[in-house]
């Protein structure tokens, strides 16, 4: 199970760099690894979320050709934070998860921007927020909603099949 999760994290990150351009809408793509990290952290806790965030971020940095460590750092912190919050707060409602996803995408964008500023890779804040971070946050919200609903549906089906006498 753990191996499968590692494979999911690693494959998902590389798949993001390779496949997401094909699902882009007007140049905006969803941050699939971020969605994956958040959902996994909510279900598996802060340790797993932190590790998953670090690995996916690192792989994204490498695959994307950016400054290695930026996304690893932001996603590791988000994974840890969400895992930590998930253990203490009620975040099982799909609406909370989806809106949280949107907010977290914005926060991750801000963190990335800050890191780039710190490590002297200047980027225009306004344009970045307007054309990259906010649209991606909305896209993530839609994709996250679809994923959350699919997971809920599969859970219901699984329970139904398990409940049936053989």
């Amino acid at each position: 199970m753990r191996g499968l999760l590692v494979l999911t994290v690693a494959g998902g990150s590389v798949a993001h760099a390779t496949l997401t351009p094909m699902v882009s809408v007007r140049g905006v793509t969803p941050d699939l690894p971020l969605i994956m990290v958040i959902l996994l952290a909510l279900r598996r806790g802060p340790e797993f979320g932190c590790l998953a965030g670090f690995v996916t971020g690192l792989l994204q940095d490498t695959a994307g050709g950016g400054l290695i460590g930026v996304q690893a750092l932001t996603k590791a912190i988000i994974g840890f934070g969400i895992g930590f919050a998930g253990e203490r707060l009620r975040v099982s409602q799909p609406l909370v998860q989806v809106s949280g996803l949107v907010v977290l995408t914005i926060l991750e964008g801000l963190a990335r921007f800050s890191l780039l500023q710190i490590f002297r890779f200047p980027a225009p804040f306004g344009e970045l927020m307007m054309y990259v971070v906010l649209p991606q946050a909305l896209f993530n919200g839609f994709v996250g909603a679809a994923v959350v609903l699919s997971l809920a549906a599969s859970q219901v089906l699984r329970e139904r099949f398990q409940g049936q006498p053989s």
């Binding site: 460590g69 930026v70 690893a72 590791a76 912190i77 490590f119």
Partner: peptide, 11 residues
């Protein structure tokens, strides 16, 4: 430690 690794990498 993970944050440290990242910061080290960035530096």
């Amino acid at each position: 430690s993970l944050v440290g690794v990242c910061l080290l990498l960035l530096t």
